[in-house]
Amino acid sequence: MVQNKARRKTKRVLSIVLMVIIGVIMFFPLYWMLVSSFRTNDQIYSTTLNLLPTSLMLKNYADLLLTTKFVYWFTNSVLITLSTTLLGLVLCTIAGFALARYRFRFRNAIFLLIFIMISIPRFTTIIPLFKIMSQLNFTDTYLSLILPFAVNPLALFLMKQYLESIPEDLLDSARIDGLNELQMVIRIVMPIIKPAIGAAGVNIVMMTWNDYLFPLVMMSSERKLVLTVGLASLKTLYVVEYGMIMAGSVISVLPLIIAFLIFQKQFVAGLIAGSVKG
């Protein structure tokens, strides 16, 4: 018994050590990014590995805010990501509900088709897509980014799985109460699928926030660029403004981290029901 206790203690200590090591590895590049954002270019290039935050220079941040259109880029990214996520969640919820709760012709075929199509490399579709957007007069507007990304097959998949787990009785009683199907989805279903919304939302947010190629091609005015493209424009043919790029990246991961901290409970809970059932 005593031996067992000792063993358990060693195990615990070992696990904690392991956890710390993994945490450091996971955190290191981000930590480095953070530290670099406070350094001058020559401090960043320093070969003597300097892990401590040697300086707290805010010049990179000041330069970024004052000499570039960073504020616009950031606002654009936030607005586009939020709108895409909202629209995407609405679309995926009702479409997912249709796929999960009704029997109709081609149901499986439609689902399979959607699922397969996301695997096509996007370079191939960018030119035809740009053509469509320009015919609709959507290029250089938020719509050109919101519309394609709101259709998110992975989010649809998660939604569908989750919606399959809702008890049929609940829906039936709603129908007996005289609600039509749309009213039922809005009033009864939507309020109880918060976790799935968290999980599907994270998928859409991740895809939209960090995308590069689509916003690069679709948006032209400097004020309408998104963060990823804007930061990349600081990297010219010969010169890389590491300090400013790092500062910009630090600011750009913050919203994601904050969102994760707020929604992680729902996110995890949504995944439990959404993905576990497979």
């Binding site: 030119i127 740009f130 290029t139 091609v217 005015s221 424009s233 010219t236 043919l237």
Partner: peptide
């Protein structure tokens, strides 16, 4: 004038040429 990375610029310019829309009035190329 709007700043883009040189290779990004080349890609974007190409897309606009193929689509026939969205090209700038003038551009510099590598």
């Amino acid at each position: 004038a709007e700043a883009l990375g040189p290779w990004d610029l080349m890609d974007k310019f190409y897309v606009s040429m193929v689509s026939g829309k969205g090209a700038p009035d003038a551009a510099q190329l590598v």
